[in-house]
Design a protein around this nucleic acid. Sequence first.
DNA 1: CGGCATCCATTTTGATACTG
DNA 2: CAGTATCAAAATGGATGCCG
Lengths: 224, 224
Amino acid sequence: MEQRTYRQYCATARTLDLVGERWTLLLIRELLTGPKRYGDLQVGLRGLGTGLLAARLKHLEREGLAHKVLLPPPARTPAYALTEAGEELGPAVLALARWGLKWAMDERRTDETFHAGWAVLGLRACFDPDAAAGLRAVYEFHVDDEIFHARVDDGTVETVHGPTRHPDATITTTKEVLAEVTAGRLTLSHATETGAATAAGDDEALRRLPGIFRLPAPRSRETK
Amino acid sequence: MEQRTYRQYCATARTLDLVGERWTLLLIRELLTGPKRYGDLQVGLRGLGTGLLAARLKHLEREGLAHKVLLPPPARTPAYALTEAGEELGPAVLALARWGLKWAMDERRTDETFHAGWAVLGLRACFDPDAAAGLRAVYEFHVDDEIFHARVDDGTVETVHGPTRHPDATITTTKEVLAEVTAGRLTLSHATETGAATAAGDDEALRRLPGIFRLPAPRSRETK
DNA sequence: CGGCATCCATTTTGATACTG
DNA sequence: CAGTATCAAAATGGATGCCG
């Protein structure tokens, strides 16, 4: 397998030859928030069978986009992480996400799963480097029982699964509320006012939060 | 058909539900350089059967990403064009291309097709808005018998199939040379020095050309 | 757990023949 | 040309089962 290629000497086609198969870009999306274990990947990718997951991981390894790592001491369990080449697919995945935030995030369907990590990546997708100029802050997000943090440093962001040492601000909410916020139907400030979310920590960091992550106004694709 | 969905409330997954199937993003790539007729799409997408092409086009129409148009007077033949939503997939396609330019454009394989339009889109992928600040110029590319033009206007580009009225500069070369240039193995200035390409027109436009389209240094994905 | 192999029902695709 | 119809080959999904 994997002999199916577009046979085009084109940068887009060559890229899609490597990561265009079903599930592959979503697998990379999962790894963009940090190394993940086999089982956690299965949780994030419901519907991807264990056999296909193994095949995709092997493919990414063979192509130099991901590699197997041992999680640091407390865990010491095998996991998968992106290589430099894999990490650099981030902008492409985020560009797809940016488009989706604007054109495809209508009402959540009843059978759709939702994970906090996707929303955090959504935030990263609409990070505005200019608005974050001169800001250095670490935000920690507590969503139900999951924790993520976003490290903003003068025009750059990193969004990583897991807690951080010294967050400047902490936002606590539920998956449901977070879904509404990243879909643009609810603002974080409105959620805190109604008690659906709580925000605590450094005042400046909190004040600038909505400015540096600018969600696009949702649009409809209806026949125009 | 189209019942296969990732069932994830995630911007990336929602986008890939719409355009993640095989051929779809390449079809959009073709349309990113202007409206195309059914037959021309088949030429640009060798391997995509006529049945699947029809299905994909119908899908894009149904989802509001493309629509059927009549080509302007001289031609007056049906064609397909992107809607606003479809056009906005450009950044995502270009992000994939940018990655490919850096990590995947090794030696052209003997069975790979190559079209000038792909290279022109490659140029657009590495357009540097800052370097183009204050520049207003139209470049016309003559590649074998195909013509494209790039309209640069103070930080923005458009790359369109077909000639333009008043090009500021004209670059003439062959498909083979152009392939080497966009793959980063040959610079345009070196190609003109050896006569593999000719460049004529406004001096400033020509002088700034290599600066505004900055091809990334190719990298290998070898095990790191 | 992590990871791979097997079996099988469905979809998707690729290639080509065919029609207005 | 633009597009349908048809059919064989390949990919997917889902359920297990196995082994360290």
